[in-house]
Design a protein around this nucleic acid. Sequence first.
DNA 1: AAATTCTCCTGAAGGC
DNA 2: TGCCTTCAGGAGAATT
Length: 274
Amino acid sequence: MPELPEVETTLRGIEPFLVNHVIRSIDVRDFRLRWPVPEAIQKACGQTVLSLERRAKYILINLAGGSLLIHLGMSGSIRILTDAIKPREHDPEKHDHWDMVLDHCMVRFNDPRRFGTFLWLEKPVMDHPLLSSLGPEPLSGEFNGTYLHQRSQGRRLAIKNFIMDGKIVVGVGNIYASEALFMAGIYPMRAAGRVSLARYEGLVTAVRDVLNRAIRQGGTTLRDFAGSDGSPGYFAQELLVYGRAGEACFQCGAQVCQKVIGQRSSFYCKTCQR
DNA sequence: AAATTCTCCTGAAGGC
DNA sequence: TGCCTTCAGGAGAATT
């Protein structure tokens, strides 16, 4: 399931195929994504891609008149198809919902569960409702211990839900939230307002570290995530607690626990995390 | 305001 | 082998 590292991996994979190239056409086979794919995406046709940008888990394809916004939802992936691949392999397969055609390649979106997004945003794009009230990027300096501690004052929800709230900080999904809390030694059910400044500083370090390492590994492939060239991510082998319920904690040997917090499966060690 | 619940959807996994 | 049930999950919307 794509989280920030998987989105970043996807962006880096498709960026060189798009920047400074002209979008010739966009063929949508199934408009039924999270929101219906609007006709306005056709405004991108004939335009040259100026840059690609990631904000939270959104990918922005910036053009002179506006931007295409893509979200992978939880099962979306993007592949680049070139002439190096046999023509018959270019036939769309199940869940290949749209293609973006350029002179030298094709960008193809696949999403079994159709929770993904494909929209056209007029400038200024950051004023769009999906982007305008997002919290800071976790890899930016704006995300620090003082900031988190200040925002958590009086909040009683579980710290895990707190750091997964996109208004607080973006891009920290279910897998990396569990991992970062384990690394920081913080019990995931602890009330957000009951975490000290010092421990928030440790948490910020852990979030940055786990995201950076995951990006370096090309993301986490649990079931079916693949980069734009079809290769899997290799971070799964570095996961400390996620998906390891019942197995031994790498730090103390106790069994890793699994519990649903806010409708999300969470993994932790009740010895190492307080 | 804050917190919780609902919703979209399909594929995988488990039960019988 | 096959059918039915359950569950996972990003994140906005609706509700309490």
